[in-house]
Write a protein that binds this DNA or RNA. Sequence first.
DNA 1: AATACCGCCTGTACGC
DNA 2: TGCGTACAGGCGGTAT
Length: 282
Amino acid sequence: MPELPEVETVRRSLEPLIKKRTICQVDLRWSCLLKETRLATLQGLVGSRFLRVRRRGKTLLFDLDRGQTMLFHLKMTGQLFLTSAAEPIDKHDRLILKLDSPLELRFRDSRKFGYLMIFPTAAEAKVNPLSSLGPEPDSVTLEQFISLLSGHKGKIKPLLLRQDIIAGIGNIYADEILYRARINPEKPTSQLNRAEFSRVYESMKEILSRAIRYRGTTVRTYRDGLGEQGDYQRRLQVYGREGKKCPACGQTIERKKVGGRSAFFCPRCQRLKSSSPQSHKK
DNA sequence: AATACCGCCTGTACGC
DNA sequence: TGCGTACAGGCGGTAT
Ligand SMILES: [Zn+2]
């Protein structure tokens, strides 16, 4: 499911209901869910209370009152949600945490890419996936943005997908950001001028905050912490729209592999070589 | 430093 | 209905 807007939506939907709840029982239904974490550590969480829920990049962090943090990565199909204990257990439910309430927290993941790590909250800065993350998009200034990106030789889209440069952008939003900025996904980063960097920067801020406002994008399996679908899929301009018309110019949207991932773009609005600059977007 | 490709694992859509 | 193929919100590893 998860790019920054989806994970943030899960965080916001879970936090008010899970805060101050106590873990009463742990039911791990697929042992490989644990990454660099012993089963006893998970079982030892019984009796701990949730203090807060945070997000860093695409990971969700649950701080507990005994100084530990649970880190979930949802990868492609992970879902983390609160539900009634009466709800039938799905074959893809990998973990169930029973709480001191009628609700329980479940982690469901058909593809088994997602994982859970538990570590002391104080050790967070040293922990694997977190220590290598770049800054959050909403905390980056234009000057920082330019210095983070420039100096790299590769194509712009794969760079936007790198979590160690900026944390949280995935395949859907990279395409939407570049479309809004009118930059071809294969454009060499070194060829972007300041105005173009600025457009990518502003588009990143705008697209991500808009996607959060619409509670994320449900293409397939994404649900928020209460099982609700997102709304942003209806507002996608290029992602998943190969063969359809560009909303701005009517040109047919194309798909091409860039950095091993499908990239959707408008070949007219996002020209690789700027022969005749198209100005159409307001 | 960057790219290409494979693997992880499962479900779904689609062509025949 | 069945079968094969392509593809999927991510990311780590390896060889080039
Ligand atoms: Zn266009």
